[in-house]
Design a protein around this nucleic acid. Sequence first.
DNA 1: CATGAATGAGGATTCATTCAT
DNA 2: CATGAATGAATCCTCATTCAT
Lengths: 204, 204, 204, 204
Amino acid sequence: MTRKQGEPTAIERARRAQIVRAAIDTIAEMGYARASFSAIARTAGLSSTGLISYHFASKQCLMAEVMRTILAEFTAFVAARSDHGTPAGRLAAFVTANCEFMQGHRNHLVTMLDLQSAAPDTESRDRQANSDRAKLAELLTDGQHEGDFRDFDPDLMAGFILSLRNGVILRAASQPGFDLAACTDELLTTIQRATSPQPAPPTA
Amino acid sequence: MTRKQGEPTAIERARRAQIVRAAIDTIAEMGYARASFSAIARTAGLSSTGLISYHFASKQCLMAEVMRTILAEFTAFVAARSDHGTPAGRLAAFVTANCEFMQGHRNHLVTMLDLQSAAPDTESRDRQANSDRAKLAELLTDGQHEGDFRDFDPDLMAGFILSLRNGVILRAASQPGFDLAACTDELLTTIQRATSPQPAPPTA
Amino acid sequence: MTRKQGEPTAIERARRAQIVRAAIDTIAEMGYARASFSAIARTAGLSSTGLISYHFASKQCLMAEVMRTILAEFTAFVAARSDHGTPAGRLAAFVTANCEFMQGHRNHLVTMLDLQSAAPDTESRDRQANSDRAKLAELLTDGQHEGDFRDFDPDLMAGFILSLRNGVILRAASQPGFDLAACTDELLTTIQRATSPQPAPPTA
Amino acid sequence: MTRKQGEPTAIERARRAQIVRAAIDTIAEMGYARASFSAIARTAGLSSTGLISYHFASKQCLMAEVMRTILAEFTAFVAARSDHGTPAGRLAAFVTANCEFMQGHRNHLVTMLDLQSAAPDTESRDRQANSDRAKLAELLTDGQHEGDFRDFDPDLMAGFILSLRNGVILRAASQPGFDLAACTDELLTTIQRATSPQPAPPTA
DNA sequence: CATGAATGAGGATTCATTCAT
DNA sequence: CATGAATGAATCCTCATTCAT
């Protein structure tokens, strides 16, 4: 392997992007387990798996870039819609944006979840999950200080919210006629009730 | 030998159980993707992968039995703790039991989730998920009729609750010092607030 | 292996016969290639392939006995019908008997041919073929001396006749509605013309 | 790589031909049953069975190409020598060409017969056999119309002739010093007598 | 004698990766 | 840069054979 050192050329970047896109579609369609280099090359219209190996040092590297790409788009999309306003408003916007991203980016999200659970790289996967959660927890903490939210453990609640989102993604992806809009509404209500500072109802 | 006919002998059952146990541990440790017959045989201390093939007609059959075994234990454990009382009480007991099962059955639950997302059998996997959700939805519907819960879509809410549980399992499994008890409390509060019939707090 | 030495007991003989019968049926049904010990044991209603190995030192030994058994029955049947009369009459009777044996012994003959071509034992297979041919050649030679037949090479002609018989067996076995009786007539006519001492027709 | 799309390159064709040749030789030497990819790779001087799988989608595909290759050469050889003249002349030429092909193509014919009887593809095997016989039967029917042949069943007689040829192939292949030329002469005489329109000799 | 569990070699096939062109 | 041929390890699975009970 005589790998690059300097800046990647334009062609280089284009190829890598093409391969990453094909990998995302392939994984979303047949799952990580069956997404071989052959399958990805076929999806991309490439004539050889060698080209993938040429541009990515290993399959793990390709998958890392796939993940990076998805998260970049996903994060940007969500951030743009949830980076201002009150914490409660931002949380609602965060949830809404997560669901909205599903439309038009189904493959991105399905692949993201598949990689999170099936990719053989516990290390970076957990790091990513922790970082996602930490950012959301920060928002929740802010909201608690401003009185938007009740007094829960922000880290745990952030995990809850991300779990809920993951569940919605999986279900929307696997159930053909799923009504995502209605689900989003119910999810918003649910999260609002779970986080709002109103006095807790009496224990049953 | 295509497959046995009559009742399995004691030795047969013991070996099968041993292999299933080894499979659960192996999948929990390295994920389904890397849980080859070789790896499982190594975990079980078997001398050959042929022995696994001798006792299970195919890898799919082994995985089916793994799933069956896990679900049997898990379901029995949860059912025993959540089959009586008011719907709200049963829901709380259900959540609690799910979390309690994690202690002493970490590998079972990790493997269950791994199989649910990575196994190459979309068919039965989705069927299982739908059936789990349907049963929980039924409980929720009952609770709505009795005034225990507010007026949400029971099917969606059931999905939410299972997603939350899955998230807790994954986190408890991957984060060494995770405080499962505290998480359970927070989860109970969260679900109670999400489902309780109290007037919704004013929208932010 | 602690193999026998003295005379086989009655039970021993019965078991061996049962296994041989099952082997014949299994090979006829699915071909030698797929006739594993498992398949044979299943056909025989045995509960273990170990029993086959117990009674036969190896698969090759079993196949040898299968062949011996088939040939014993086949030879006896044919010999009883073709051991007297003029050589020409005996030849016709030989051919007829070969065809008649097909009825009621389809599996025997199909297995015989399958073993002849697929069994991994060139040695004894060729020996058998040569011996069959030699015996038939002897009959032909007798017939030539008595003026029943023209002056062909008996060894070659014997080979021809056996080839014709093999072809008829294969075809009758593989073509469901095949009219074996009509074929036998045609075959008799053909062989009679091929061997008769009449002046050869003028070369075309 | 599922399979190529465009035209195969020169190298591709060469490798495939090499593998097919090695398969033919291997099957001829040890029979289809023992002609594993390992054995074929060894014969071909390849470093790995993976290379065979790289060039042929499955063993069945390889065997299909082996058969196609053999039949193409064999058919062309025979057709070139038996496609003109009177039906009787063409039949004689057909028989002669079949025998002549043995010289220099022993392995081709031995493999052809082995595949016909041992290959696990009853379907196409029977189709091939029927098609061969049908073509020969057509020639025989023509000859009957022109008075070259007596009034036999053309389909049966075609089967007889092919059986005779198969027998000659097997014998020439397995018996080292076999005099193929003499056999061919005897076979020609035999077939001529069997088919000629001369009055049948009086029944014995 | 019979059983069925166990063994280990060998089967075809897939795949990420390498490398000459 | 791109190609596609080549590699070899690893996959699941089958099978004849062995052996303790």
